[in-house]
């Protein structure tokens, strides 16, 4: 049986996408290095990274839920809650990222706890939304109904923030299991996000080979940081894989922008394709989780020693 031949679109835009990714990732990496507080112990560094990760997750959720709930015409007042809580989480997490010494303060902790709890309620709402559609728990409704992953990301952001506080609670984390548990949580976060990206890329029939990237690199990163929770030596493998995952989180929106360009009318038709094309704000979730993971590695290694 002969493979169907169809003319392929020019690869030049894809080369531009790759170049833009490298440039953006380098720029962001350099900025983060500069902004990073080099002082402080491993706990501070972990708290800061967890805060930054939570903030990035919140940006992703805020934009994604704002766009998706706009598609849903904010039919239910409750649809304002998602983006609002994501903004609250963004504020609190950013505060922690810049002032990690305040991570254990009461206010940011309460804020992030609330954000996390809202994520769970959102998850319940979204599940209900899926189950009430004709066909109930079917692939079709999972493809096109309210996504379970989005509110879950809010819960993760909340958890990261709360853990950041715990890191600075004054206990000797090196002797507790907190870094290990956090590493396991990061692994779980990555796998959840991989599941969501994989499912949605499956909906897109993996029509572009680049769509396999988020289901190959992040699972390896999840595996390695999961292993690092058990034996800290694995952290050596986790670092480059988490960095690669972070680059994916930066590359994602650029690839998705190219995806919108591939749709009918391209960016000229953005009013439709921002909703129907690949979601621009979703991939940075990988960046957020990877950033948190990278931050916890030193504490993990120290605990191992």
């Amino acid at each position: 049986m002969l493979a169907p031949r169809q003319p392929e679109p020019s690869h030049r835009p894809l080369i531009a996408v790759a170049a833009a990714t490298v440039a953006t990732a380098t720029g962001l990496g350099w900025l983060l290095q500069r902004a990073w507080n080099p002082k402080g112990d491993v706990n501070h560094r972990a708290a800061q990274a967890l805060g930054a990760g939570a903030a990035i997750l919140c940006i992703s959720v805020a934009l994604d839920s704002a766009i998706e709930h706009y598609r849903g015409q904010f039919k239910d007042r409750a649809m304002f809650v998602g983006p609002t809580m994501a903004l609250l989480g963004l504020g609190a997490a950013t505060y922690i990222a810049f002032r990690p010494e305040h991570a254990n303060d009461r206010l940011p902790k309460i804020a992030l706890f609330t954000v996390g709890a809202t994520g769970l309620i959102g998850l319940a709402f979204h599940s209900y939304n899926i189950l009430k559609r004709p066909g109930e728990l079917s692939a079709l409704n999972l493809f096109y109904g309210a996504p379970a992953g989005a509110p879950a990301a809010l819960t993760l952001a909340g958890l990261y923030g709360v853990i950041a506080g715990e890191m600075l609670s004054g206990r000797d984390n090196v002797s507790t299991r907190l870094p290990k548990h956090t590493a396991a949580l990061i692994a779980f976060s990555l796998m959840g996000t991989v599941a969501e990206a994989g499912f949605l890329h499956f909906r897109g029939a993996f029509q572009d080979p680049a769509m396999y990237a988020p289901v190959t690199i992040p699972p390896l990163a999840a595996l390695s940081i999961g292993a690092a929770a058990l034996t800290p030596r694995a952290a050596a493998f986790a670092e480059p894989l988490l960095k690669a995952t972070a680059v994916l989180g930066i590359a994602g929106p650029i690839f998705h922008a190219y995806g919108i360009h591939r749709n009918m009318g391209g960016w000229h038709n953005w009013t439709q394709m921002i909703l129907q094309g690949p979601p621009l704000p979703a991939p940075p979730a990988f960046l957020g989780i990877a950033a948190a993971g990278l931050g916890i590695l030193p504490a993990l290694q120290e605990a191992g020693e």
């Binding site: 169809q6 003319p7 392929e8 679109p9 909906r203 029939a205 029509q207 995806g259 749709n263 009918m264």
Partner: peptide, 8 residues
């Protein structure tokens, strides 16, 4: 339901 080559 997804792009295919030059087809949208």
């Amino acid at each position: 339901s997804a792009p295919r080559g030059m087809a949208h």
